[in-house]
Design a protein around this nucleic acid. Structure first.
Length: 262
DNA sequence: AATCCACACAACCGCCTTGTT
DNA sequence: CAACAAGGCGGTTGTGTGGAT
């Protein structure tokens, strides 16, 4: 079977690796004429020496007009952390709540930024300790950045406008019940009990999750203190050395000084 | 100036699901 | 209902780039 496959590949001399400008142009023009979908047909008829899969990926992750480029905003980062805590590595599902962002981009963000922090602390990124750390230190900081940006650009319309709404302090709210900022979430952040929310690209995620409820009052003192960021000059790290030490120590206590990742 | 290293991101691979015949 | 093809998804790898040494 695999040899047959290989022979097929050779027969059509399928190209691999980075896409050229010419290939991009061909793909864009073909989709402009015939629309998306039927990727294998597209690959055969467009003149591209690529697999249908490759064409699909290139279009969805890079060429599609509504693909957003550039750094993730604090709002987007916050959403990624929040949704990942609920759904785990369901990147495409998470991406549905970040218009213009692809699952690939979100996955890369998680691996390069978030998991990097876990590695530095020598903690499993999926551990409850690390999740707590995200909630106590990182997410409040993002909230802080969001409010700072908000207050400094009152006259400047937000590119991703978040509709004003009534504050939701209902404890049954998915975010408030599972996120428990600053509290120990090790008991109630289980992936087994993910909220069954119907994701929709048209639904405002902040509205859906009641994220407006996460004002400073909702964040515990320790978290807001950290978020206030005494001493954080530029926002490079996600937490200070003190915070990292605290997380690490907590982890040591919980694991009895044992099981660190290498 | 050269080399090394870490990072970010694009692209590929394999598996699974879904739709069609 | 089975077989097959296509699409979708998550994990992994490859590569270009910028900073550090």
């Amino acid at each position: 079977m695999s040899s047959k496959k290989g022979a097929k590949c050779e027969e059509f001399e399928l190209r691999r690796g980075p896409w050229t400008l010419e290939e991009d142009t061909m793909l864009i023009h073909y989709i402009a004429r015939h629309g998306e979908g039927r990727w294998n047909l597209l690959a055969r008829c467009s003149g591209l020496k690529r697999t249908g899969k490759s064409c699909r990926l290139r279009w969805l992750n890079y060429l599609k007009p509504d693909v957003k480029r550039g750094n993730l905003s604090p709002e987007e980062q916050f959403l990624i952390l929040e949704l990942h805590s609920k759904w785990g590595n369901r990147w495409s599902r998470i991406a549905q709540f970040l218009p213009g962002r692809t699952d690939n981009e979100i996955k890369n963000y998680w691996r390069t930024r978030v998991q990097k922090q876990a590695r530095q602390l020598k903690i499993d990124a999926n551990s409850s300790i690390f999740r707590d750390a995200l909630r106590c230190y990182w997410m409040p900081r993002l909230l802080d950045q969001m409010s700072l940006a908000d207050s400094s650009s009152n006259s400047n319309p937000n590119p991703n406008p978040i509709p004003q709404q009534v504050h939701n302090t209902d404890s049954s709210d998915p975010v408030m019940s599972t996120s428990c900022y600053g509290q120990s979430s090790s008991t109630n952040c289980s992936m087994d009990r993910l909220p069954e929310l119907a994701p929709s690209p048209y639904e405002d995620p902040f509205l859906a999750y009641g994220l407006d409820a996460l004002d400073s009052a909702a964040v515990p003192a320790v978290a807001t203190d950290c978020a206030a960021g005494g001493g954080g000059s530029d926002w490079e790290g996600l937490w200070s050395m003190d915070e990292a030490w605290h997380v690490r120590k907590q982890h040591e206590e919980e694991c009895g000084g044992g099981i660190f990742l290498q």
